Amino acid sequence: MAKINLLPWRQEYRAQKQKEFQQIIVIVILVVVGAVFGWVKTVDKQILDQKSRNQVLTTRIKKLDIQVREIKELKKRRQELIDRMRVIQELQGNRPLAVRYFDELVQATPEGLWLNSIERKGNKLSLSGVAESNNRVSSFMRNLDQSDWYEYPALAGVTASPRFGEQASAFQLTVNVTGRKQDDDQDAVKK
């Protein structure tokens, strides 16, 4: 039988396949490295783009924060001005009322009654004085109750005051200060 040696042919075939396999692996590795490199570059570019967008947003937010602070400051100043204007209007509107209150108090005071002190706390007016008799105090309280500018007179105390006369009385009373009473205005409109 003839001797045929197939081993070198197989070895050559294997060596060729091994070489092709190594070439394919190198090509695959190069393609994978290229793809990974491209992917990393794409992600880095997206990150840089997002950072630049974030930076733009941050600067715009800072500008808006400054504008918001300015708006808040302007609103605060506006409210302060409105409050000042309201106080000034109230003072201007209430300025003639003090004269009205005193005028009405003088008209309500009967003869034989003297006021020693007048003190106002809020809408309460505290009066103290001396009257020739208790009837004068009663008359004073009725006059205050009928007044357009006072209401609810309340007697706090009456004491005898002999140094002003036999029937003289020192008194203290409180009365509420109001604006012009609504009932009288409505009656005047109806007539």
Rank of each mutant, 00 (worst) to 15 (best):
W39N: 07
I24P: 00
T159D: 10
D183R: 11
N94T: 09
P8E: 06
G157D: 07
A15Y: 01
V40C: 02
L74G: 12
W39S: 12
W114K: 08
F171R: 03
A35Q: 03
E73L: 13
T42C: 02
Q50W: 02
K75W: 12
R120V: 11
S138C: 02
E132W: 00
T159H: 01
E151T: 15
S169L: 11
E20K: 08
R86F: 10
F164W: 10
V87E: 12
V33W: 05
P110F: 05
D184H: 10
R14M: 08
R69M: 09
T159V: 08
K51R: 03
Q16D: 07
A170N: 09
Q167S: 14
G112T: 00
K17F: 05
P8Q: 07
N54T: 10
N54W: 02
F102N: 08
R84F: 05
K72P: 03
R100A: 12
R10M: 10
V177C: 06
A98M: 10
L155M: 06
V158Q: 10
V31W: 13
T178L: 13
E119V: 11
I61G: 05
S161A: 12
K76I: 04
N176K: 15
I71K: 15
V130M: 04
D103E: 12
R142N: 07
V130Q: 00
Q55A: 13
D184W: 11
L113H: 02
R10L: 14
